[in-house]
């Protein structure tokens, strides 16, 4: 018996083997992500239609967004995806300490992302760049309120996904402290990892589409 705090994993009663359990979870997660794709997909369709109708509005509106903050956040999220991968890897090679530090880093990156988003939102709200009927800023184009409706809906829903991801990472951290993840069992890490990369990927599309028009 080793002295490490490794908790053995028990396969749920209705599965025949660990492999069946792991593969089921992975397939389930992928199907769930397909669902997420359709969820965001509809918003991208809205974006495409309104940009097609009002290209000049989108050209003007993107100038009111700070591409520097956007680029910074893109780098932050890509870094967080990397630390997430490393966290899964650490569990696979039984390095609990580095697992915990990589998860913590991912959590910090996510927090930084939301912090920057908060600064950006505050600035928009301050200048009246608000969705729909709350829009009060001065602009040339007639339909700026539509752009900011789309901007807040898309980034807001994305931010909500980040928040859910952070809660999941906290849950993973607690379980990591208990030594539940190791080379024989790391299913939840892998699943949250998939989710996290998806959320990252959504931002990689949002950034150029909203900030880098023209």
């Amino acid at each position: 018996m080793s002295m490490t705090l490794k908790k053995p994993h028990h396969v749920a009663h209705h599965f025949a083997s660990e492999a069946q359990e792991f593969e089921s979870a992975r397939l389930g997660m992928w199907i769930f992500l397909v669902q997420e794709l359709l969820f965001f997909g509809a918003l991208f369709v809205v974006y495409a239609i309104f940009r097609w109708w009002h290209p000049e509005t989108f050209m003007e509106a993107h100038q009111y967004l700070s591409w520097k903050w956007g680029a910074f956040n893109t780098v932050v999220l890509i870094a967080s995806s990397f630390t997430m991968v490393m966290a899964v890897r650490s569990a696979q090679v039984n390095q609990r300490k580095s697992l915990i530090s990589y998860l913590s880093l991912t959590l910090i990156f996510a927090g930084v992302f939301l912090g920057v988003k908060y600064i950006e939102y505050m600035e928009k709200i301050h200048h009246g760049f608000l969705p729909g009927s709350f829009f009060s800023a001065q602009g040339v184009s007639e339909y700026l309120h539509l752009f900011f409706g789309i901007y807040f809906t898309m980034t807001g829903l994305h931010g909500l996904h980040i928040l859910v991801g952070m809660a999941l990472i906290v849950w993973l951290l607690i379980r990591s402290f208990r030594g539940e993840f190791h080379s024989e069992y790391y299913t939840p890490l892998e699943m949250v990892g998939l989710y996290w990369h998806f959320v990252d990927l959504v931002w990689i599309f949002l950034f150029p589409l909203l900030y880098l028009i023209g």
Binding site: V46, F50, H54, P131, G132, S133, F134, E142, Y143, H145, L146, G149, I150, F152, T153
Partner: peptide
Amino acid sequence: MGIGIFNPALG
């Protein structure tokens, strides 16, 4: 919030 995407009055 009246985001206007489905509302003809808001474009």
